[in-house]
């Protein structure tokens, strides 16, 4: 029995607050990019989508989750701590000497699989993992969480073609489609047009949802996971960069903006 929409919503709100709290203590972390994918991660980790074992993060039984937008996944720190991948006290030491929780996550963190500080690498490596699982006859799935900005990297499209050709229906790509990269809206930089149409033209199964409706994200992912029709799967999650933070939400330069500590204190107080 998967958790109800109310429980997932409450969890997402808690993750939002914890992510702000981490950023309040460690302003080096990228806050705006880490607020847009919260519901995606909550649906994956609490919504019964991913199989995992916090006591054995690299267990063969796990579904592989490749977080390609590494910098924009600080919200995973409270999630992984909450699920028991590491002690919650670690959240108080982000970016400090001796901590394994850095400004950009590395695979020294229990629960992280690969290196994703450099963008546009996750999808290709995930495709290799998906091919390996298929060739070994494993039923496990691979999920990739990518930003839309990093889809400007050409290596992604090599993997997108490859995955469709090899029928990797165990591969899921979830795009945190906040439509903003570092210097503005992607539509003004190099427009993607419709990612759904593009991926569909490459032979992928595609869905698009409101990426902040955690129950919708959950049901879309669960439905896609059920299907094995030889097509890899894309879920475009429409999201807002910097969601819920006044002045930051959907600001073109949100990536490089840090909310003032006083504002963070007010928000944290209000959401206690």
């Amino acid at each position: 029995m998967n958790p109800s929409a109310e429980i997932l919503r409450a969890k997402a709100d808690w993750v939002w607050r914890e992510t702000l709290a981490i950023h309040r203590r460690a302003p080096e972390t990228r806050i705006a990019s880490s607020l847009s994918p919260i519901e995606i991660f909550v649906a994956l980790y609490y919504g019964g989508v991913l199989r995992f074992d916090p006591r054995e993060p690299l267990a063969a039984m796990r579904d592989r989750c490749i977080i390609s937008k590494g910098h924009g996944s600080i919200c995973m720190y409270p999630i992984l701590a909450d699920l028991g991948f590491f002690p919650k006290e670690e959240l108080l030491r982000v970016c400090e000497k001796g901590s394994f929780l850095g400004g950009i996550p590395d695979p020294v963190i229990p629960g992280y699989e690969t290196l994703n500080g450099s963008l546009g690498h996750g999808l290709g490596v995930a495709t290799g993992i998906a091919l390996g699982l298929k060739r070994r006859g494993s039923a496990r799935s691979v999920f990739v969480i990518t930003g839309d900005g990093e889809l400007h990297e050409g290596a992604n499209w090599e993997a997108i073609m490859f995955a469709a050709h090899h029928g990797l229906d165990n591969l899921h790509v979830v795009v945190d489609n906040n439509e903003i990269s570092m210097l503005g809206h992607t539509a003004d930089i190099v427009a993607h047009g419709s990612l759904v149409l593009k991926f569909a033209a490459f032979g992928w199964d595609t869905e698009e949802v409101d990426g902040h409706d955690v129950a919708l994200v959950q049901s879309a992912l669960l439905a896609q996971k059920e299907v094995a029709d030889g097509r890899p799967k894309l879920l475009v999650a429409r999201t807002l960069k910097g969601r819920g933070v006044p002045g930051l939400e959907n600001a073109p330069l949100a990536h490089i903006m840090n909310p003032k500590p006083a504002l963070l204190d007010i928000l944290l107080e209000a959401h206690t």
């Binding site: 290709g124 490596v125 290799g128």
Partner: peptide, 8 residues
Amino acid sequence: NISAGLSL
């Protein structure tokens, strides 16, 4: 990338 994934 495919080789890295296969090796993992």
